[in-house]
């Protein structure tokens, strides 16, 4: 596949009903187009009973906007937003298991862990589990640091992201629940209100 320079990471945020099978319905929108989901997190949202999907993919904006439209078209999806990394506050959490004796014996390791903002979650005789939270580069950096000291296990969570410009979903949901919602909800978000261009 040829490299497209305008491809970048996008954070797709979907507010949905809590429904069995919806994860599959959303996942196949990507797999049908042979697009790899790089990170997927499903969690509660600020509203009880409403779920929030955070999906990360690397694509062009044209593709992402079409995918967002396809997701929002699903009956049980309330609303979909997509944002570049600059538009969100995002975090990923990572866990690292290392032999305790190495940590205990080598002061340099302890220093490195501190420098990387790692925190011990469990300390046992045979192994210790550290945790860091941050951007991909940060959690990656600590792998490289710990590798020479016998990193036993590593795992990283999916990305969670908060949209900087969002006012939350509470007022929106009330609109959705109305039989005849106002224009903001009934009209699509794809309409860029500033220059009145339909960008979907």
């Amino acid at each position: 596949m040829s490299h497209q320079p305008d491809r970048q990471e996008y954070n797709i945020t979907a507010y949905t009903e809590n429904q069995v099978g919806l994860l599959n319905r959303i996942a196949i929108i990507f797999s049908r187009r042979k697009i790899n989901i790089e990170s997927l997190n499903v969690s509660p949202s600020e509203i009880e009973g409403i779920h929030r999907f955070n999906i990360v993919i690397t694509e062009t904006e044209d593709v992402v906007s079409k995918l967002a439209g396809q997701i929002e078209k699903q009956v049980e999806v309330l609303k979909v937003y997509y944002n570049t990394n600059a538009d969100v506050i995002w975090q990923e959490m990572a866990l690292y298991k290392v032999p305790t004796d190495v940590i205990a014996e080598k002061a340099s390791v302890e220093r490195l862990l501190r420098e990387n903002g790692a925190r011990a979650v469990v300390i046992r005789k045979d192994y210790t589990v550290f945790e860091t939270t941050g951007h991909r580069e940060e959690t990656d950096a600590l792998i490289a640091v710990l590798q020479p000291y016998g990193l036993i296990e590593f795992v990283r969570s999916a990305r969670i992201a908060i949209i900087k410009g969002s006012n939350g979903f509470n007022s929106k949901l009330r609109e959705f629940e109305r039989r005849e919602p106002g224009e903001d909800v009934a009209e699509n978000e794809f309409l860029n209100s500033r220059d009145a261009v339909f960008t979907m």
């Binding site: 009956v75 049980e76 309330l78 039989r179 919602p181 224009e183 909800v185 009934a186 009209e187």
Partner: peptide, 13 residues
């Protein structure tokens, strides 16, 4: 006649 997550008919602008 209504599903909150489903909007079959948009408002005409």
């Amino acid at each position: 006649t209504h599903i909150r997550s489903y909007r079959p008919k948009p408002i005409v602008r």
